[in-house]
Amino acid sequence: MKLLFVLRQTFSNLWRERTPVMASILTICVALTIMIALFEISWVLYAQLRELKSNMVIEVYLDPALTERDARRIGEQLENYQTIERLRYISKETAAEIFEKEFGENIMDILNVNPLPVSYEVRLLSEFNHPDYLALFKKQVESIPGVDEVHYRHVMIEKLETLTETTVTGGVVVLLILIMAMNLLIRNTIKLSVYAKRRQIEIMKILGAGSLLIRMPFILEGAVEGLIGGILSAAGLIIAHRFIASSFELISFSPMIYKVLWVATVSLGILFGLMASAASVGRFVNKIFSKK
């Protein structure tokens, strides 16, 4: 019977304060949608960055005038680097084979001579695939006598890294503002509900009601707002995912993502709603309690 009473009170509060309740639901919905979308974008960017870094190859081109012995000696010097995970010697012949594999033509047939230089293919340990270390490594290796040029795709990595950092930093700032707005609106709705029912709270107190029974309808009110906001946000995100998947052939989503979206968005909505209402209801009810 207590549960029934609490639920009836919760829905009566929601109906009574329906305009601020709708504002709270809308804010929760927008905040959750942006939060999840930012999380997904950051996740994809990080995954791309990780992929790029793990497959990143640094090519150390040697002076064409070097003998094979000198080239091997440079290889021994490179092996001293603790940061190198794998080192591969690419002779002129191997370079020609790679060229043929990539471009489908034999370089000897085109030029009658093999101009491709001897090189080393270097893969660093993943934790050292950072633009700062890569620049340092390039500078050090290029200073070894006999090394002609060190090359890696640093521009793309740097751009992706900057984009990821900007997205995450900007996302966190936007998210904090949205969470604050969401918190403020839920608190305001709860405050209105508490003040609208202050007489009822006073009567219940005189009748010996415990604080949990008095506060629970208001706490649940926040949770219901979060639940509805979460459902709307999940629905919006799923529609957006389906639209993206149908518009761009290269992009597809696993069916699992839809289930994860439902669970994550709705759970987060309920959690935010509960936290904001639980934090505020205590304060507002206590204000009434302290007067009595």
């Binding site: 009822q200 009567i203 219940m204 009748l207 009601a209």
Partner: peptide
Amino acid sequence: VVFQDFKLIENMRVSDNVSLPLVIEGYRY
């Protein structure tokens, strides 16, 4: 306790007002 201003919850049904202390006590429906 009975008051001069009754202290009833005006928008609640009469039966719900009377049942309030029993709900607080946690009795069965």
